[in-house]
Computed example of a mutant assay.
Amino acid sequence: MLKSTEFKTRALILITAVGMVGAWQSAFAHTRLKTPEITENSARHGSDYNAVVISHGCENPATGAVDANTIGSVAVFPDGKDSIITVDGAPHSGPLTDFVTNWGNPVTKVQDRSIFAFEGYIKDSLGNKLGFWTGGGSGLTGGFRAVVPFTTAGVIIEPTSCAKSVTFVLGIADICQVTDKSGFSDETVQMWTPAVGSDYDGVGLHGFDSPATLKVTRSIAPLPESCGAGVDVVVKPSATQLNRDLRINMDGNQIWPK
């Protein structure tokens, strides 16, 4: 049997550890990708399986906790056409093809109705799948987490470029109440989007300018010797794209926002 002092010591260690875990979860409990960093791969070798992880709901006005039910989610990748590109933080005026050879149809949704009853794609005018939405049904109960599965096509970094990595910034919204844009608040939607001047920047909201990312690291062709240590490239969706694509349309009708 444990002595009283030994029991108290072990209890104190356990309480401290639990407190540290709680603090870590509180600090990092944002909607993110399950696997935020992958290596480049050839499309002929298949897809990378991943998922959007919804970590919490919207703010509950009665308690102040982020445990309101989530009724839907929408995620969009940059289209690579008018995207905002930076190289080691400096603006790049050239096209995405300077760094990536095969972007255009980046995502495929893995069919799953374990949480939300309906799902659909967000496509460009050529039919390329840039994102997806899911919603309806029982939804995500406050206090639980959700995993929304998808795959990304093989991303190939331009071998002659100096890119050692290319990070794609997503726009994601977790919806708790269907409102128009003027009704966006911490009680109605959790906005995980880059602040690029779109209607979905979420200024003043819980997740302001805290988007999920997918980092692709070079693994096929070695860096050209002239590149030195290489550069890190970041690709964000433009305000024009987010205003156009970060929405839910079903059977020809816009469901969210109103």
Rank of each mutant, 00 (worst) to 15 (best):
P91V: 14
I122S: 07
D124E: 04
A62T: 08
S4Y: 04
V66G: 01
A173H: 04
S55I: 04
G127M: 05
N128W: 06
F144I: 06
D174Y: 00
F144T: 14
G143E: 07
D88I: 10
T152L: 10
A51P: 06
F150G: 03
H56W: 06
H206R: 12
L130Q: 08
V189M: 02
Y49G: 10
L130W: 00
D124T: 03
L33Q: 09
E225C: 00
P106H: 06
G131L: 11
S55K: 14
S55M: 14
I248T: 12
I71R: 02
F28M: 15
T70S: 02
G207K: 08
F77D: 04
I156D: 06
T193I: 05
S238G: 09
Y49P: 00
D232N: 09
S125G: 00
T134W: 01
S93D: 14
R113A: 10
A51S: 14
T167E: 13
G142V: 08
I15E: 12
W192S: 15
S185Y: 02
V196T: 12
S238D: 08
P237M: 10
F132P: 03
K164L: 01
S73M: 13
N60V: 03
G183E: 08
R10A: 15
W24C: 04
D124A: 02
V178P: 05
L242P: 08
V169P: 12
S238W: 05
Q241R: 10
P194N: 06
E59V: 02
F28Y: 07
W192Q: 11
T134E: 13
K129I: 13
G142H: 08
V66T: 03
P222V: 08
E119P: 01
